[in-house]
Amino acid sequence: MSQISQNNSNSHDRDLKKIVDALSKITSLSSETIKPHLNELLSRLSQEQSFKAAGHFFDTTTDDEWITAFHEWSESHREKKLPVLNEEAMSRESFYDEW
């Protein structure tokens, strides 16, 4: 590990300790209880950053990839056994109240 990388790591460790200590004080929870939650939050934030850097799904996929993903998504709902709406429920007239 380079000296710069090691210094950044030490700095982050100190910052994280301060955050854990502050959260512990605010919530009256132990550091051991807070650390997993903080680690999960940091993981989610870094994943979100990775997704943003990778570009939006719709901007980076072909039409065929989008269609495949849509079909996979719709098929994933079959196992939920959701009720199917009848024709009357799907009609335009049923969407609006009669005045």
Rank of each mutant, 00 (worst) to 15 (best):
E72F: 08
A22D: 08
H12S: 13
M1Y: 08
S5K: 09
K80S: 02
V84S: 05
D59A: 10
E87H: 05
T61E: 04
I34W: 02
E40A: 14
L45W: 02
S91H: 08
T62Y: 03
E98M: 10
H71S: 08
D59I: 03
D63F: 11
D63K: 10
E88M: 10
D59C: 07
S46A: 12
S76H: 03
D64H: 07
S30R: 13
K17W: 07
T61Y: 12
W66V: 08
R78D: 00
Q6K: 13
N39Q: 15
E79Q: 00
N7D: 05
K80Q: 05
S9D: 03
A53W: 00
L41Q: 07
R78Y: 04
H77F: 14
D63R: 08
V20Q: 06
E79V: 00
R92D: 03
A89T: 07
K17F: 12
A89Y: 06
E32N: 15
W66T: 13
K18P: 00
T68V: 10
E48N: 11
F51S: 11
T61P: 01
S28G: 09
L41R: 08
H12A: 14
N10F: 11
T68D: 08
L41E: 02
E88Q: 12
S50E: 02
S46V: 10
S43D: 05
D97F: 12
W99H: 11
E40C: 07
L16F: 12
K35Y: 12
K52F: 08
K81G: 09
K18G: 01
L38C: 06
S9K: 13
A69N: 08
E72N: 09
K80M: 04
N7A: 14
N7V: 11
S11R: 14
